[in-house]
Amino acid sequence: MTNVLVCIKRVPDSSSQILLTDDEQGVEGRFVGFTVSNHEQCAVELAIRIADATGGTVTLLSVGPADAVDQLRSTLALGCHAAVLVEAEPTGLGPSDVAHEIAAVVRDHEARPDGGTSYDVVLLGNDAADSGDFQVPIRLAYLLGRPVVTGASVVEVADGNVTAHVDGPDGEETYSVPAPAVVSVLEGGPEPRYPSLKGRMAAKKIEIEMRTMSREPAGASRVRLFLPPPQPSTVELLGEGPGAAGAVVDLLEKLQVAR
């Protein structure tokens, strides 16, 4: 039975226009809505597959505002079993703080009086879609004293070993580490599934474990966020649709690339 913990972060949907909050400490999500990044959705998919193969469980964990229950709830609907929210103001946390909070939950769950849950693998995204620190998984691994593999697109657990496949600079790399381990996931593996109606109903009944921070955060090293200055556009429109082909080929001839 393999138990997996997946760490997901509530982030503003950054696929359209980006606005910053007035205090310049974060991205404004009020008008664009919030989501969970692709890497983390892929991590959830891998977790469900790993747990299902052995009759294990998937627990979700987020460190963030109370509203992050929305992301936990919609991710639970995919077929996860439990969820934990450590309530915190995310802009006040650095990657080391987040790692400490995740580590505290892992240790606490293992020490629960009912025998607890020990997580064979903790899955995270490779980098958070908003802060992009590239380090919570690694800091977590050091805090827990566990091996860590980053940027995996496929993760499997068998016979007490975690195997991870990474698209490396010299081809596909395989890592094999003893469980328990920490793995960060990069999108590109199995496609994330959609929630079923049954899953949505089941998710509503799951009670989310609400927690407070385990320690005073050290804080982020952020001074402020800012947007790159807008560049004046000097683009020349050649036309719309296939009708522009003539103008395009004229240009190719002018640039002498249409030999």
Partner: peptide
């Protein structure tokens, strides 16, 4: 907006039309 020239359209229509014209 950053390009020198632009064509607004579906690449699956525009690119074949360019090939045909070439």
């Amino acid at each position: 907006t950053k390009a020198t020239y632009a064509v607004v359209g579906d690449m699956h229509e525009v690119v074949p039309a360019i090939i045909e014209e070439l």
